[in-house]
């Protein structure tokens, strides 16, 4: 699985297809990401961690 911000879902799906992993699970987080402070990133991570763990555990 991979983590992607919502502005890059299309890229994530297209690249997964191009690399032969069309069913790759994507955990989506809000965009933008790069300009967030460390505290904001930490808060986001806490919101998203359960979903990321669920997708990572999928086979």
């Amino acid at each position: 699985m991979t983590v992607v911000s919502n502005a890059f879902i299309g890229l994530g799906k297209a690249q997964a297809r191009a690399l032969g992993h069309a069913a790759l699970p994507l955990a989506v987080i809000p965009h933008p990401f790069g300009s967030r402070s460390r505290d904001e990133v930490r808060a986001l991570a806490e919101q998203c961690v359960a979903e990321i763990a669920r997708l990572a555990a999928e086979k």
């Binding site: 502005a7 890059f8 299309g10 890229l11 297209a14 690249q15 191009a18």
Partner: peptide
């Protein structure tokens, strides 16, 4: 490379 505008070219 597949970087079409609006798709993989963001």
């Amino acid at each position: 490379g597949g970087a079409l505008p609006g798709d993989m070219d963001r």
